[in-house]
Design a protein around this nucleic acid. Structure first.
Length: 151
DNA sequence: GCCAACGTTGGC
DNA sequence: GCCAACGTTGGC
């Protein structure tokens, strides 16, 4: 069992959108970074805990709790010419981008970046590091427990 | 909209 | 394999 923080732009998929989806589950489409892909493809297990993070919005922060709900499979948007996530170098035989399904468990109060920064125990979180851009990052069990108490 | 940080691309 | 140029991310 591992823990993860996954960023989503609420304009695209918010925690509310995920909760309203069928089975409260959404495919985590659009990741086009190899490190983030590798986490989904190689490291995630069904049932892993997920902090659902809202980014690129007026109030960035942790907005909900979710879990990994599938094994990895190809991200369909890479094959769709009309999608902004289309990748001309990807083929069905040789997909480049893999994803997992994420099942929303519950919406939480918004734990903002400022609040996260105010907790010394969370100082090591990747999301708080300068220049961090990775949309999926591992969360340690200690960080998970600490954040769970804030929610 | 700005811009620092960082990933990717491609010429060499 | 280096590295400059370019593109993207994401908080502010």
């Amino acid at each position: 069992m591992q823990y993860w923080l996954m960023k989503s732009e609420p304009d695209e998929v918010s925690i509310d959108d995920a909760l309203e989806a069928s089975d409260q589950t959404v495919p985590w489409t659009g990741v086009r970074n190899y490190q983030a892909r590798n986490f989904m493809r190689d490291a995630m297990q069904v049932g892993d805990g997920v902090l659902f993070y809202h980014s690129s919005c007026p109030q960035p922060g942790i907005a909900g709790v979710a879990e990994v709900a599938s094994t990895p499979y190809p991200d369909d948007t890479q094959f769709d010419r009309k999608s902004k996530y289309f990748d001309p170098k990807a083929t069905r035989e040789n997909p480049r981008w893999m994803l997992v399904d994420v099942k929303a468990i519950r919406k939480t109060r918004l734990v903002t970046l400022d609040e996260l920064r105010s907790h010394a125990d969370l100082g090591g979180m990747q999301i708080l590091k300068r220049g961090n851009r990775l949309s999926i990052t591992p969360v340690t069990p200690d960080e998970w427990r600490h954040i769970a108490r804030l929610l």
